[in-house]
Nucleic acid binder design. Structure first.
Lengths: 190, 190
DNA sequence: TTGCTTTCTTACCATAGGGTAAGTTTTTCC
DNA sequence: GGAAAAACTTACCCTATGGTAAGAAAGCAA
């Protein structure tokens, strides 16, 4: 929690009052491995800030195959923003991959802070801009890199994440099958 | 221009003063087909709002192959946000696919409006949120759909865009070769 | 219109990655 | 610690998409 506050203060000047309000919305919690924080098809009204551990958001396609949109590690936010933005039911699930600590916020309340304390806006903007940049890079990587190159990049970008994730979590993030990832690993080991 | 102002006013209450300032930053211009507004490797300090026509942003990979990140049609913004956010030289180019009308803004100046008129923040947030949602959907589509399905979706999402674009523009957006797209079209025609 | 250039199509074969299923290893949990 | 479950690997063959190159069509310029 203190780290998050500190992070916010590094971006904006947070008044004592706004800080107090922000803290009143925050609900720190520990979540067990395997917990589902957001479930496909249900209403979404929470967003999570990860203080420790690793979570992922994923969707399930018509054949029952899972596709990972995001791994969230320390200092990332995770939720189903598509559902929140469009005011729809979740099309994504958010799953806890290892025992983690998160701070839960009610999405509407967290948005409300922007009305009450407009000084908070630049922080939110910072988060969103960073998010846009990382999504754009992901798309460009998907378009131009081979599966092996994407895997190498994943290892580089999420250095300690592999220990928390199953093989098929990573495969479903890279857009390949678990078996292909296994083959890639064999090749790399040589 | 009026449409953009109108759009802003539908999201936020824009004071007369802020509107005046906003207008002072806007530089409407007509651009010819084939113009390059942002060039890979150069400094980026402009963002463009499309009022008419069609543009695209793309990168060129190590083999000289182009990959389209975005088609921008009426009412979309386009630039190299990766470069702007990271304060780097452009890794993307922005090209005009048909004679178009755009409004040019200096990126820093446009950002400055947020400092001067914090009331503008929610509009910027709206743009960014919409952008995040559309990028996330694109990634999920890329992960779960076949080339044919992605093409169908493209036709649906960009209904009149095909007339402005070359075959290889669309192919490079879908993540396939021009030849594959050609084959897909033949199949669909049957 | 005529020719030149660019784009699109098509035929051929090549290859990255997918699917299945069996076997192996690792993890879980009692 | 040991049985059961889950995850991972491997061998086999399959399919979607890629690459090349040649030819056809469309766009453009004079």
């Amino acid at each position: 929690m203190e780290e998050l506050i500190h992070k916010i203060k590094s971006i904006i000047a947070l008044s004592a009052e706004a800080e107090k309000y922000f803290r009143s919305l925050a609900k720190p919690m520990n979540v067990a491995k395997g917990s589902i924080l957001i479930r496909e098809g249900q209403a979404v009204n929470k967003v999570y800030f990860v203080t420790d551990g690793c979570l992922r958001s994923y969707c399930t396609d018509k054949n029952g195959k899972e596709h990972t949109l995001l791994f969230a590690i320390k200092n990332w936010w995770i939720s189903d923003y598509i559902a929140i933005h469009n005011n729809e039911f979740a099309t994504l699930s958010v799953e806890c991959l290892t025992a983690s600590s998160v701070i839960e916020f009610n999405a509407k309340e967290l948005n409300g802070i922007l009305t009450r304390f407009p000084e908070y806006e630049p922080f939110q903007r910072h988060i969103l801009e960073r998010h846009v940049v990382s999504l754009q890079k992901r798309i460009l990587n998907q378009l131009q890199l081979s599966a092996t190159e994407r895997y190498d990049l994943f290892i580089e970008q999420y250095p300690h994440t592999e220990q928390y994730t199953r093989n098929y979590h990573i495969a479903s993030y890279l857009g390949i099958t678990q078996e292909s990832l296994s083959r890639i690993r064999v090749e790399k080991a040589k």
